[in-house]
């Protein structure tokens, strides 16, 4: 058994797991990156969102065998040298988090959105975040935060 080789946040990992195990479970339970959350287990809520390359995906719906050779980015990979990413800082500045559980997923989805569309309209932000659920904020401050980060790099 050679194990499955993964590249997560720029760092190589080898895990000895079934290739059908979800990427989310591997991140959380085999690698210990618990910033990627779990909730609905069925691709609805978006709390497990990570990036494959520049694209957001729901890691509960990705068999880990699929992502060999891909660059995986989780919420832990956004801050550089102790500095939050522009989006992370915007979420803090705009008070966009209440209980906070959904926020890593939102930030990953928004990061992908801003890579593809650096200056989205409110409507484009709403659509770009439509794969993520928040049960506290009512979304207004989340959208404010993405709007504030827009045009300043994800």
């Amino acid at each position: 058994m050679e194990g499955i080789r993964l590249e997560i946040n720029g760092k190589g990992h080898v895990v000895d797991v079934s290739p059908y195990k979800s990427l989310r479970d591997v991140l959380r339970y085999d690698i210990g990156l618990t910033g990627t959350k779990e909730s609905c287990d069925s691709g609805v809520c978006g709390v497990c969102t990570v990036l494959l390359g520049d694209k957001s995906v729901k890691s509960c719906l990705i068999p880990v065998g699929k992502v060999v050779g891909e660059k995986i980015t989780t919420i832990e990979g956004l801050a550089k040298e102790g500095e939050f990413s522009v989006l992370q800082q915007s979420f803090i500045d705009c008070f966009a988090s209440q209980c906070g559980y959904c926020i890593p997923g939102f930030i990953m989805a928004a990061t992908s959105l801003l890579i593809e569309n650096p200056d989205p309209t409110i409507q484009e932000i709403r659509e770009g975040l439509s794969g993520n659920l928040c049960r506290c904020t009512g979304y207004v401050k989340i959208i404010d935060a993405v709007r504030q980060a827009a045009g300043r790099g994800a």
Binding site: T49, A109, E127, S130, G131
Partner: peptide, 12 residues
Amino acid sequence: TSEISGPQVRNQ
């Protein structure tokens, strides 16, 4: 196609 789930599911 905009009705399909959200961006994450459409990406895969």
